[in-house]
Deep mutational scan, measured.
Amino acid sequence: MQIFVKTLTGKTITLEVEPSDTIENVKAKIQDKEGIPPDQQRLIFAGKQLEDGRTLSDYNIQKESTSHLVLR
């Protein structure tokens, strides 16, 4: 499924993911596309910070959901 990640600069990154993917996996995909190390990434969805060990389905992130990327 596709999800979108919006950066603070207003850029939207499109990612191909599975509901069973962990947040860690998603951060690795963002690193592949954008070159941002996962330890600098914070992903926010529905006002919550997403934890590495959880999956997209844990957070009820469905296709075409948009989460926000904040850099630390």
Rank of each mutant, 00 (worst) to 15 (best):
E24I: 11
S65K: 07
T12K: 07
S20C: 12
E64M: 13
L15R: 00
F45Q: 04
S20H: 12
G47C: 07
M1P: 01
S65R: 07
A28M: 14
S65Y: 07
Q31R: 13
I30E: 00
L69A: 02
L15T: 01
Q40W: 09
E34D: 05
L50D: 01
K27I: 03
R54I: 05
G53F: 10
I61A: 02
I3T: 01
D52Y: 04
S65E: 07
P37Q: 06
Q62Y: 11
S67T: 15
T14F: 07
G35P: 02
S65Q: 08
E16R: 08
I23Y: 01
D21H: 05
K63S: 14
F45G: 02
T7P: 03
T55N: 05
Q2T: 14
E18K: 14
V70D: 07
T9Q: 12
I30G: 00
L15D: 00
L43E: 00
S20A: 09
T66A: 09
Q40M: 11
S20Q: 10
R54L: 10
T9R: 11
I36M: 05
R54G: 05
M1F: 15
T7R: 05
G35H: 06
F4W: 07
S67W: 14
Q2A: 07
E24K: 12
L56R: 00
T9H: 13
H68V: 13
F45M: 06
Q2F: 12
Q41H: 04
T7L: 14
I13K: 00
L71T: 08
H68P: 06
M1Q: 03
L15Q: 00
E64P: 06
K63W: 11
T22F: 08
K33D: 03
E24V: 08
S20F: 11
E64N: 15
K29A: 05
L15M: 04
L43P: 01
I13M: 05
D58G: 03
Q2P: 06
E24G: 12
F45P: 00
E16S: 11
D32M: 14
G47Q: 04
L71K: 06
S67N: 11
I44Y: 15
L43G: 00
K48P: 01
Q41T: 05
T14W: 07
P19F: 06
D52A: 07
R42Q: 13
Y59R: 01
S65P: 11
D58S: 11
E34G: 04
K33W: 06
Q62K: 11
T14L: 10
Q41C: 07
H68W: 14
A46R: 14
K63T: 11
S20T: 13
L43R: 00
L69Q: 02
T7I: 12
E16C: 14
M1D: 02
E34T: 15
V70Q: 10
K29T: 03
G53K: 11
I36P: 03
G53H: 14
R72T: 14
Q62F: 13
I23K: 00
D39N: 12
F45S: 04
L43F: 03
G35K: 06
D52M: 05
K29W: 04
E18Y: 14
G47L: 03
L50M: 12
K6G: 05
D52F: 04
V5D: 01
Y59M: 03
V5N: 00
I61P: 02
D21C: 07
Y59V: 03
G47S: 04
V5Y: 03
K63V: 09
K48Q: 14
L43Y: 02
R54D: 05
K11N: 08
F4E: 06
E51Y: 06
P38R: 13
Q40A: 09
R42S: 10
D58Y: 14
T55F: 06
T7D: 06
L50V: 04
V70K: 06
A46S: 09
L56C: 01
G35M: 05
T9G: 13
E64V: 06
G47W: 04
H68A: 07
I3S: 00
T7M: 15
I30D: 00
T12Y: 11
Q41V: 09
D32H: 11
I36H: 07
E34R: 05
E24Y: 14
Q31S: 13
S20R: 08
S65H: 07
T55I: 06
K6R: 10
K33H: 09
E18R: 14
I36E: 02
S65G: 09
K6A: 07
E24D: 08
L8T: 13
N25S: 15
I23L: 04
L71M: 09
P38H: 10
Q2G: 04
